[in-house]
Simulated scan of single mutants.
Amino acid sequence: MQNVGKIMIAAAVAVGLTACAPSEQASTQPPSGPSTPAAAQQPTKTSESSAPTSEAASTGAECTADDIKVTGAANSKPEITIPTTCAPPKKLIVKDLTPGTGKEVVKGSDMLTHYLLVTWSNKTEKDSSWKRNQPFPLQGVGEASVIDGWNEGLVGIKQGGRRLLVVPPDKGYGQGGNGIEPNETLVFVIDAVQVS
């Protein structure tokens, strides 16, 4: 009888520990949503509420250019804010944020660009020519050795202009490359520094 009592106590303790484990694990995992001051102040709520937001975004309407917030003036480093309330677009989005007044990029043009890249899935900066303080040279727009999203999306921009490009995976890095996650949507803000 004493052994049966010990087994029952051990079983009760095991059930109690199992019941506690998921909530302990949930509180130690980082939030799956974007890192914001609100998320940092309420990590438990963010963890619980970020799953429905992600699910809604993946099944909801696709974002448009107007859903993506870009701040900062042309010729200075921009800031990009990607929404969590809509899904990444499946087609290339091109939007002039600041119209240029100089020479227009046509297929075959050479240009110098400043750019900022933010990846959609984690909403963090991935690359920036502003960090290096050196414009990126692009030769033969339309057939340049860059992703299709740039070759297609930069035609028509004028020198001095700033353009938003939202590049779906099939016009970006696809299955991955250059440190980009597989099937990542890329968000660029590109300044046409010089067009020749």
Score class of each variant (00 low, 15 high):
Gln194Phe: 07
Pro30Cys: 08
Val187Lys: 08
Ala51Phe: 12
Pro34Ile: 03
Thr124Lys: 15
Ser32Asn: 07
Thr59Gln: 13
Pro169Glu: 09
Gln29Cys: 07
Lys6His: 10
Trp150Asp: 02
Pro31Lys: 04
Pro137Arg: 01
Ile9Asn: 04
Lys45Phe: 13
Asp127Asn: 14
Gln139Thr: 14
Ser128Ala: 02
Val105Cys: 03
Gly140Met: 03
Thr113Asp: 02
Asp191Lys: 10
Asp127Ser: 15
Asp67Ala: 13
Gln159Tyr: 05
Pro34Phe: 03
Val146Leu: 06
Ile157Arg: 04
Ala73Lys: 15
Val13Gln: 10
Gln25Ile: 15
Glu125Asn: 01
Val146Trp: 03
Ala21Arg: 00
Pro135His: 01
Val4Gln: 04
Asn122Trp: 14
Ala12Ser: 12
Asp191Ile: 09
Thr59Lys: 14
Asp191Gln: 11
Ala65Pro: 01
Asp66Pro: 01
Ala10Ser: 13
Asp170Gln: 15
Pro37Tyr: 03
Leu165Glu: 06
Gly100Ser: 04
Glu24Arg: 05
Asn122Glu: 15
Ile157Lys: 05
Val13Ser: 10
Ile68Phe: 04
Val141Leu: 03
Ala74Glu: 15
Ser50Lys: 01
Trp120Pro: 05
Gly149Thr: 02
Val195Glu: 07
Asn75Arg: 10
Glu104Phe: 03
Ser49Asp: 12
Gln175Glu: 14
Glu143Asp: 14
Ile68Asp: 05
Ile190Asn: 13
Gln134Ser: 10
Tyr173Asp: 07
Met1Arg: 07
Glu125His: 02
Ala87Lys: 13
Lys126Asn: 14
Val13Cys: 13
Lys107Met: 06
Ser35Thr: 14
Arg163Phe: 07
Asp127Leu: 11
Glu79Tyr: 09
Pro78Phe: 01
Leu116Glu: 14
Thr18Gly: 15
Leu154Thr: 08
Pro99Ile: 09
Pro34Glu: 02
Asp67Tyr: 11
Pro30Tyr: 01
Ser35Arg: 13
Ser76Ala: 14
Lys77Cys: 01
Gln2Phe: 09
Lys91Arg: 04
Gly60Pro: 11
Thr46Ala: 14
Pro135Asp: 02
Glu24Cys: 06
Ser109His: 03
Ser76Tyr: 00
Lys131Cys: 01
Ala12Val: 06
Glu125Phe: 02
Pro99Leu: 11
Leu186Gly: 05
Thr53Leu: 15
Glu181His: 11
Asp148Asn: 07
Glu143Cys: 04
Ala39Gln: 08
Gln2Asp: 09
Val187Trp: 10
Gly100Pro: 07
Asn133Ser: 07
Gln134Ala: 07
Ala21Thr: 10
